[in-house]
């Protein structure tokens, strides 16, 4: 074997070894985080049973009462509300961009959507405080409900605006993946654009759109900063959308490092983090599964 060939082979081996090691490191990191959270959360179970932790509404760390239910409900409700607001907007926007808009307009729009996606969370939070919170307060007054404006609804609106660019860009890509001849076939039968979308494109793209939605959900679940700034942060189960709520990420961000003198507070927050992480992981896995199915149907 010549010297230069030996050199080339050695480089190849070194590159492969490094690439593989980094990959293993990243996988290991993910497992380490889950395992670490689990270890740190476990002590809480010595004084509170798991059902109590998940379903009790009394959150009094001083009295060793760690019911996470209001926070879990807060997380789910803010996320659901955001998705209810965001989904119709996202679907119609991506349908318009993919099926109706001219290429140039689509590209310009994509640029603006990318800008929207790049706005830092804290800026969304500020806009929420300046615009959405007063809007919610005003709306509450109009229909005779006492509210500060810092509420589930404000959190839902801000979160919706934050996930819209994300869902729109994925949905648009999914719709563009439907092969052109399907459009041709339906249009050639004299279908209108909307009929083509409704009966053909949406059916072909269904699992991909579900994946886009689920990924949007997963993102919304974990979003902290902007929601924390407008949602009110009161440990209660909200009775209406005008009530304040307290989602899990906000609980962790607000309290960790401050009240560590209270025994087991730390473990309670860790179990909150673990629950949050599990919810997001389940959603992400669902999305991956849906995308795999999409690959098979198209």
């Amino acid at each position: 074997m010549s010297n230069s060939l030996k050199k080339r082979k050695a480089k190849d081996i070194i590159a492969a070894v490094f690439a593989r090691s980094f990959l293993i490191f990243i996988i290991f990191l993910a497992l380490l985080i889950i395992f670490g959270l689990f270890l740190k959360a476990r002590p809480i179970l010595s004084i509170v049973s798991l059902p109590e932790l998940l379903f009790s509404s009394s959150w009094h760390p001083m009295k060793n009462e760690f019911g996470l239910f209001p926070f879990i409900i807060g997380t789910i409700e803010v996320t659901l509300l955001a998705m209810i607001i965001a989904l119709p907007i996202c679907m119609l926007t991506s349908i318009y961009l993919s099926e109706y808009a001219k290429r140039r307009f689509r590209e310009i729009s994509r640029f603006f959507i990318d800008i929207l996606a790049g706005i830092p969370s804290v800026v969304y939070g500020l806009c929420g405080i300046l615009v959405v919170v007063p809007f919610v307060e005003f709306t509450g007054e109009l229909i005779g409900i006492q509210t500060t404006g810092y509420s589930l609804l404000a959190g839902g609106i801000v979160l919706a605006v934050m996930v819209i660019p994300f869902i729109v860009s994925i949905s648009m890509e999914v719709l563009r993946m439907v092969p052109e001849p399907y459009r041709e076939s339906a249009l050639a039968l004299g279908a209108t654009r909307w009929e083509t979308v409704k009966y053909v494109i949406l059916k072909k793209a269904r699992s991909g759109l579900i994946a886009a939605t689920v990924l949007g959900f997963a993102r919304a679940f974990g979003e902290t900063m902007a929601v924390l700034m407008v949602v009110g942060n009161v440990a209660q189960v909200p009775k209406s959308v005008f009530d304040a709520a307290y989602p899990l990420p906000a609980l962790i961000a607000n309290n960790y490092g401050e009240v560590m003198s209270i025994p087991l507070y730390d473990a309670a927050l860790m179990s909150a983090a673990l629950i949050l992480m599990l919810i997001v992981t389940i959603f992400s896995l669902t999305a991956h599964y849906a995308l795999l199915k999409l690959g098979k149907t198209i």
Binding site: P179, P181, Y182, E184, S185, A186, L187, A188, L189, G190, Y199, V200
Partner: peptide, 14 residues
């Protein structure tokens, strides 16, 4: 298009 039908090269069943 209702009066002038079109049969594509590859069939793409709806």
């Amino acid at each position: 298009r209702k009066r002038v039908g079109f049969l594509p090269q590859h069939p793409y069943p709806l």
